[in-house]
Nucleic acid binder design. Sequence first.
DNA 1: GATGAATGAGACTTCATTCAT
DNA 2: TATGAATGAAGTCTCATTCAT
Lengths: 186, 186, 186, 186
Amino acid sequence: MGKRQEILDTTLELIAELGFNATPMSLIIKKSNAAAGTIYHYFKNKEDLIDTLYSELKEEMGKAIIKNIETELNYKEKFFLIWKNLFEFFIQNPKKFEFIENYANSPFVHKEIKAINQRHYQAAIDFFQLGIRIGMLRNLPLYLLINLIFGNVSSFARMIIMEEIVPTDNLFFDVIQSSWDSVKVI
Amino acid sequence: MGKRQEILDTTLELIAELGFNATPMSLIIKKSNAAAGTIYHYFKNKEDLIDTLYSELKEEMGKAIIKNIETELNYKEKFFLIWKNLFEFFIQNPKKFEFIENYANSPFVHKEIKAINQRHYQAAIDFFQLGIRIGMLRNLPLYLLINLIFGNVSSFARMIIMEEIVPTDNLFFDVIQSSWDSVKVI
Amino acid sequence: MGKRQEILDTTLELIAELGFNATPMSLIIKKSNAAAGTIYHYFKNKEDLIDTLYSELKEEMGKAIIKNIETELNYKEKFFLIWKNLFEFFIQNPKKFEFIENYANSPFVHKEIKAINQRHYQAAIDFFQLGIRIGMLRNLPLYLLINLIFGNVSSFARMIIMEEIVPTDNLFFDVIQSSWDSVKVI
Amino acid sequence: MGKRQEILDTTLELIAELGFNATPMSLIIKKSNAAAGTIYHYFKNKEDLIDTLYSELKEEMGKAIIKNIETELNYKEKFFLIWKNLFEFFIQNPKKFEFIENYANSPFVHKEIKAINQRHYQAAIDFFQLGIRIGMLRNLPLYLLINLIFGNVSSFARMIIMEEIVPTDNLFFDVIQSSWDSVKVI
DNA sequence: GATGAATGAGACTTCATTCAT
DNA sequence: TATGAATGAAGTCTCATTCAT
């Protein structure tokens, strides 16, 4: 698979499961069958390793969100599609979900890294901005609106991943509808 | 003020500002004007210190949420009151908000601690359950519904605290209305 | 019982069971239901506490060894009596045995303390010296001879206390005879 | 010499001289010219370091005891040889003697470690068992007999090492004869 | 006599990182 | 590319002891 990728995968795995605090380099080294020096061959230091992982995941997530967005759909249908895309990315990648969620608000993360990675979301951001402009969505500050919607997706996905609720098609429909109702105009 | 309280206050302050990783015991010791041994006189170890702080904050937050709930109000008005109570607790206690948010989903936290602290929210939980039963609120799994609503409050509060948006009465009204629209029945 | 005695008893108990390393003052404090300050009221410091305990035990042991020595007995019978006295003191006080054994060769002990406590054994020492002089015992350096004999008692007592052998009258007779055979003249 | 061996040697040196309590890891680190981390690279923790040292010494001692045992000698001569082998190992390695003696009865030592190391003594154990079977040695429980003899060697060696007696050939002959007299059959 | 909160030096250990191979 | 022994600063925690009450 290549040592570099193995290291990244192991890091994701461990941090998702144990958290940052309980994931020392020594553990990443052991679990990824790499030598200490090898990690430092590919990454400048621990911070760089984490930042790289974060960036790659964010890019992957950014692409997942807008999958099939070019299809012929009306605004509401595209909203539902984006919502579903994000939701399914989380459900199908629980470790990545865990990592991104923990990392996103952590003081561990560098603001610059966050800023840089915003670019992967430009299409989605534009979509929501359009919704406000054409009067489909409530006139809330753009990023607040996005955070509210994405927060809904997270809350729902988290409970499923944590096995606190059982996902069904009906439930999915209810939640996405609830989310839509919160931002749609009348 | 008492060393114990001083230690707890300092810990909140530091972890909110710097995060877990960047808050060694030595720093807590220095900033709280206590000796190393004193911390261990009151808390079994760092984990116990954090758990205790979390529990005390959760209790305080639980009480804040249901402030004035006994007043003569209709269901929707009570919903708005709880929403506002939580929001104001966050805005007025940004450090506590930061700590609770970071800590809540961290693998650092013990499930038992979370479970124990649920009791402080019984009144609020009962309130949402009632809403579903009497047909005021969408028939979603109880805790999912609560997480969606509280997630909205968090998203809004976070952006204000991070100074990413400027709070106004109008904005507040829009957001709380959005939140209500997402769970109200028609 | 008096706090002082309770502290000494607890210290014996703990050190016999756990060893010096695993017996911090804090544990003695907890198990003896005394406050930290109380220990320091009676003993200058930990060293003084241990030294005091050692001295009291040595005195007690010194008296036990020469019990009934004034009786009308011939030399060999008195040898057997002393041997038996020491053996029974060990068997009946396994914790004291453990403590004395561990403490005796520990660099923890102060030479002066050891020297001072020799006086309790003067009668026994005189008895062995007499044995050499009158030609009943091998002409070995006095303290070597004593150490060989007392070492035999210890080896035997230790195995019984550790339940590595089962004590019987016959076994006792064999061992004491073996010990006598090692030092008797022809 | 290799860091690992240097650490073990230094540990033996220090513990023999100062005892467990007065031998912190920091001192071992300083005297062995190793970094703190290096010790933990080779040993899980302090306990493991001590256990390893104990095991290696026991193995060495086991081999020393049976040196030249294959020579053409009668039973008594072999008994004297083993006695002398052990004695000389102690005299020539006073630090190892000190360490083994202090460690052997310490609650610090793990029973499993002791059990494992018994295997190095199988040849000697067999020799004493044979002595009992063929009627050369007193019919005492095997391990008791061994402990009595080895206890004699220890008592003698200790006094020489502590410079409480001066070793001479005559004295050596007297003591070994005394030891033999205690277990030989008539 | 007795208490126990408070102390702070120092114990053990972990950690990210380096560098010769 | 890859290794892993070695580093040492810094982390968490323990300990004997003090002192105001």
